[in-house]
Design a protein around this nucleic acid. Structure first.
Lengths: 257, 257
DNA sequence: GATAATTTGTTCGTATGTATC
DNA sequence: TGATACATACGAACAAATTAT
């Protein structure tokens, strides 16, 4: 279908035949986006160029563009232009949530880099999530998860120190939470609760995730429990919103029970 | 615990006793936030004021503030100040997702206002979601959902026209999707898939949802199916990110199967 | 609408204490 | 003991965003 932007040549539209001009333009561009004429993240022609192509006023083009934005097919940035929507990674939230599995399923190469780790007394929020008394000691790890070398998320995880005294050290060797839990005799763990929210990125997140300033991030707060239902991990993960979407799928959920 | 900000009086910290100054400040403020000294959305003292209160440099206060931001306990806006985090409504994503039920469970008064409705040919995305051929006619509705008169979300919903010819008219009377489906003989419908993403708000969303410019919004794309598994609704809902968080809970999920 | 004041954000520099080799 | 690296703490100046006048 990719025909080297031959579609950029000028083309007349049908006027006053029951379908508005902006809607015709919108349909043409939608088809081109769907056919991959503009690949993910690629810049579309400027409004002026599109106006010339379709022999219409710039405002008519703008209406078509506004509709494409509403349909989430493109994003527009003031002073930069309009861009084909980047394909977002599907991150499945099911009973079992595994970073590596999730990425491998999308043919992406996962990587987890441990930034820092220390031992801290549980604050009020973490204590509640893990069903422990405040000031109980926790192992805290901060790490960045990537797909194909592109940073995806910035995670802060807490593990009960008493049960997992050297969690961070074991994790540092195999770079996998699942494998580390297995080293501690936990063959399986499941997601007890997941909270998803969104906000603007902080300076540190901008740096670590290579974002534009104030870019939206999604924050996922989660608790994982072991076979007995005892909390083993509380995590807060900050995701680059332009690279990920979360999927809660009825089928995939059933399949993973 | 609320003691009229008497805690705003100056207080000396312990220096050079193994605990850093910024961590002591962070702990004091965390406790105050937890005790409700600053209620939801309330402005905290300025950095200058906090620096005077604790007899430290502004940078030292900033470190404490950065930590509170990381813990999602406050939000900071340049030029405006730091604010205690607003309580977010929990919106549960389970097998059955019902706007009214979700809000009533949180003691909030739900309202759905229909803005516009029309009939449109299915675009490529909607057709795929509803398992129909493109250009199949769909009823499209746009509406704003509110909690206690505060706008929460801006929804665009599509229903197969053939099966639900006057969906919008029926909906206009009872202001409830569930009740409208019942009028069409669908006693029950379930969520087949849910996709959650985030981006900055568009101009129209800023107006309808009373947001600040470029405020983050969460976009939820969903498909609901009837008892036979046939898609009956495809919706795209834009949520004010500062007022909502989505919850995928293992327990509540089981309970609603 | 223009201007000033306020508040947070960023970047210099300096000094100090602590941990490590 | 010295050298080094790192986090903490303070100070000053300026940039950027918001609010008040």
């Amino acid at each position: 279908m990719k025909e080297a932007k031959s579609s950029n040549k000028r083309q007349k539209l049908v006027r006053a035949q029951g379908v508005t001009l902006w809607h015709q333009i919108q349909s043409v561009l939608e088809k081109e986006l769907y056919d991959g004429v503009y690949s993910a993240g690629e810049k579309l022609p400027t409004e002026k160029q599109l106006a010339e192509r379709f022999f219409v006023n710039r405002h008519t083009v703008r209406q078509a563009i506004a509709e494409l934005v509403r349909k989430e097919l493109i994003v527009v940035e003031q002073g930069r232009g309009a861009f084909a929507r980047r394909d977002k990674l599907d991150y499945f939230l099911a009973r079992r949530v595994r970073f590596r599995e999730n990425l491998l399923r999308q043919q992406k190469s996962p990587a987890e880099e441990l930034l820092t780790h220390d031992t801290v007394p549980a604050d009020l929020v973490a204590a509640k999530a893990l069903c422990l008394r405040p000031t109980t000691l926790l192992v805290r790890m901060r790490s960045v998860g990537s797909a194909d070398k592109h940073p995806l998320c910035y995670t802060t995880q807490y593990f009960p120190k008493e049960r997992f005294p050297d969690f961070a050290e074991v994790y540092a060797e195999n770079h996998s939470v699942t494998a580390t839990f297995q080293a501690f005799g936990i063959a399986d763990y499941t997601r007890k609760s997941t909270r998803i929210m969104a906000r603007g990125a902080e300076a540190e997140e901008v740096r670590l995730l290579k974002l534009r300033r104030h870019a939206p991030v999604m924050v996922v707060e989660s608790v994982n429990v072991d076979h007995d239902g005892t909390p083993v991990e509380y995590g807060v993960c900050v995701w680059a919103a332009d690279r990920i979407q979360f999927v809660v799928d009825a089928d995939s959920h059933d399949a993973s029970i």
